[in-house]
Each structure stands twice: as structure tokens, then as C-alpha cells.
Amino acid sequence: MTTMQELGTPTALIDTQRMQHNIERMQERMNALGVRFRPHVKTSKCPSVAWAQIAAGAQGITVSTLKEAEQFFDAGITDILYAVGMVPSKLPPALALRQRGCDLKILADNAAAAREIGSFGKAHGEVFEVWIEIDTDGHRSGIKPEEDVLLEVASVLQDAGMRLGGIMTHAGSSYDYDNPAALLAIAEQERAGAVRAAQRLRDVGLSCPVVSVGSTPTALSAEHFDDVTEVRAGVYVFFDLVMRNVGVCTVDDIALSVLTTVIGHQEEKGWAIVDAGWMAMSRDRGTQKQQHDFGYGQVCSADGKVLEGYILSGANQEHGILSRTGEPDRSIAERFPIGMRLRILPNHACATGAQHPEYQAVMSDGNTETWLRFYGW
């Protein structure tokens, strides 16, 4: 155990009480709505966090890289969905994981990828479990529910002897909304589109046991998940300022912050300079297009109390600029003296976490534990 005062800066902090509350809130909601929950662990990339999610009732995990899959499998988690479209160069490491006993599911959203998976699987005597990605909101990748290619991809996989595990979708456009009615509508659009795609497969005699949907906003906004078998969400475990602006959490729910130290001032500009620049916070400016722009993060006291009106308004590589919104604070040096420690809440928890090799998990007694996180692809 280490005390907060002994920590160097900048460092990423997890408020474990807030994190556990976030985990329980989501899991209780999924339980009440009668669906399995498969958290997306790309947010934390940390076994300690993932095990807390599983302990609360999560069944399996979602990852965004094969390195994550390898690391979490090494940590003892076997039920893993790799939720990024498969390409030929990644089939050998995927095969190696399955041969070691990992229940790895892979993804396809086009016939070319399906053919490559089938050809590679047959050549190596492996029956890959493949899910088809569905595009329910035009946000990113996937096959639209009514497109003919959906049936083509499924048939290619079946003809090659692969296992069609189901379909999945992610309503990433839900991040663009900020009112309950709009979030409810996009959640229903996500659900209905996924269910329709699954039904089209079943109508022609193809298997579709899993119907997987989810994003943090839709998971927390949907009224029901009729005909859905599982939900996925990721950033909910920490939350962040983008989610605060979307309206699915408050700043008091945000469990990730960056501990920083005041290192200088530009008093005539109303600036305090801290040692957390974009290398500590990331360059993510996700709140810039939302109704409340937090710059590079919301400034808090060392004990986590929000300091209203003060944000990290600028960031260089290792220097952060702390200032007051509106009129400059000419007493900035007095208010934030040299050596003062602060916490900065992030715009995007996934991006800020990715800047750090480890977290310092703050326990209920104020002491911290080091929790490692994964890097790379």
C-alpha cells in the first residue's frame, strides 16, 4: 500500500468506491432487464477491473485488440469477444489463442473476410466461432440489417464449416445525444436493428444464437431488451466528462482522474501550470462539441472535490494550463500555489487510461494499490 502523498505525478487514479458503484449499477440494470452482460474491457485494459466486473455478474468480456485477448486469457478469463473486424494477418494469433483453450469469438462484416476465415480455418482444422457485425446507426462498420450481404456472409461461413455464433452491433452514435428521449430512441433503434438482422438469418435456416447490442448510453437508456441475449458496454466502469454531458452520469460518478502538481504560473493570463499535459490526459477533446466544454478536463481538489469553473484549458506534452472559464483569475497563484496537488477528471476515460502503464487504485482508507494495465496490439 502507498499513501496518496507518496505518489509521483502525473499518475492515473481509480476511485474504487465509485468504480464499484458504477459496476453494480450497470449489472443490476442488466439483471433486471433479463440479459447477459459482457463488458467491454478496452476502457480499463486492467485485470483487476475486469475481475470486479465478473464478480458482480458479468459473463465474458469484450476486447478491442488481440493483445488484450491474450493478456486477459493469461489472467484467467476465457470467454472473450474480439469486437473488431478480422483480417488475414490476425488469424494466426487468433488460432493460437483458441488452441490454448480460449473461447475466442471473432468478427466479420464482409464476404471477403468471411472467406479468409473459412479458408484459414479449414486449412488448420479449426472451427472458428464468428459473429457478424451489424450497422444499426451508420456510425462505423457493419452490415445494415436489410442488406443482402448479411445472408452472403453467413452462408460463406456456414459453407466453410465455421460456427455462426450470432450478430453484434454498437450504437456509437449514442454519444452524440444528450436527452433521455433521444437516447431511448437510439437504444430502441439499436435493439430493433439487431433483432431484425438475427431474424433474417433464422428465416433462411441459419443459426443465430447470440444477439449482442450495447454502448454505455444505450445500455443505461433502453426500456427493454426483448429478443436480445446480451449487452455490452465499456466506459460506464469509470465514466467521464463526455458521458456526463450525454446525461448518463454525474461528475460524482467519474472514477478515473489524473493526479497532478502545480509547477508554475502565468499570473497576468490567469494560468496555473501543472505537470499533466496531453501525455497524461490524452489529446481527446470530446466535450468540445457538446453543451459543456471542459477543455482537457475538470479540475478537482486532491480529495476529488470539483472546483467549479476551473478546467485544464490547454495542454502541451508535459505541461497543462489550468484556468478559470470566463474572466481570468488574477489570484491564480494564491489559489493554486506551487506544489499543490489536484485531480483532473478526463474527457474520455479510455483515451486517458491509455496514456498510463498502471493505475493507482484508491481504496476506502485512502491508501493506494498499483493495478497494471495493458498496452499495444
Score class of each variant (00 low, 15 high):
150 L>H: 01
67 K>D: 13
77 I>T: 01
62 T>C: 13
19 M>W: 02
194 A>P: 02
96 A>C: 05
173 S>N: 15
225 F>D: 04
185 A>C: 08
257 S>D: 09
302 A>Y: 11
221 S>K: 08
96 A>Y: 05
184 L>D: 15
56 A>M: 10
307 L>S: 11
322 L>T: 01
67 K>P: 06
268 E>G: 11
174 S>E: 06
25 R>T: 07
251 V>S: 13
141 S>M: 12
231 V>Q: 03
376 G>Q: 11
116 E>G: 11
198 A>I: 09
180 P>C: 10
6 E>V: 04
300 C>I: 00
83 A>I: 01
232 R>W: 12
268 E>F: 13
254 I>D: 02
312 L>D: 01
337 P>C: 04
339 G>A: 09
249 C>R: 01
314 G>Y: 01
317 Q>C: 12
306 V>F: 03
327 E>A: 13
198 A>Y: 01
259 L>S: 09
270 G>Y: 04
86 M>F: 06
267 E>I: 10
156 V>W: 07
153 V>A: 08
36 R>A: 15
328 P>V: 02
308 E>W: 10
200 R>F: 04
91 L>G: 06
201 L>Q: 08
258 V>G: 04
41 V>A: 00
269 K>G: 14
307 L>E: 12
130 V>Y: 00
349 A>H: 06
290 Q>Y: 14
331 S>T: 14
49 V>F: 04
334 E>S: 14
165 G>N: 05
38 R>F: 05
368 T>I: 08
338 I>Y: 15
371 W>P: 06
274 V>D: 01
22 N>A: 00
20 Q>K: 14
179 N>A: 13
57 G>T: 02
56 A>W: 04
311 I>L: 12
334 E>P: 13
84 V>H: 07
117 I>Q: 07
95 L>A: 12
56 A>R: 05
184 L>H: 14
248 V>P: 05
97 L>V: 02
28 E>P: 12
43 T>S: 11
198 A>V: 00
349 A>L: 03
249 C>L: 01
185 A>Q: 07
355 Q>Y: 06
2 T>D: 14
263 I>R: 10
197 A>Q: 02
57 G>L: 03
18 R>F: 06
327 E>K: 14
365 D>P: 08
257 S>C: 02
54 I>A: 05
241 L>M: 07
337 P>Y: 08
321 I>Q: 12
99 Q>A: 10
80 I>H: 06
286 G>N: 05
131 W>P: 11
186 I>G: 08
15 D>G: 00
6 E>P: 09
121 G>E: 00
260 T>V: 08
188 E>L: 13
42 K>W: 02
190 E>F: 00
159 D>E: 14
318 E>Q: 13
228 V>N: 01
114 A>C: 11
111 A>W: 04
205 G>Y: 05
11 T>H: 09
175 Y>F: 13
280 A>L: 03
280 A>K: 00
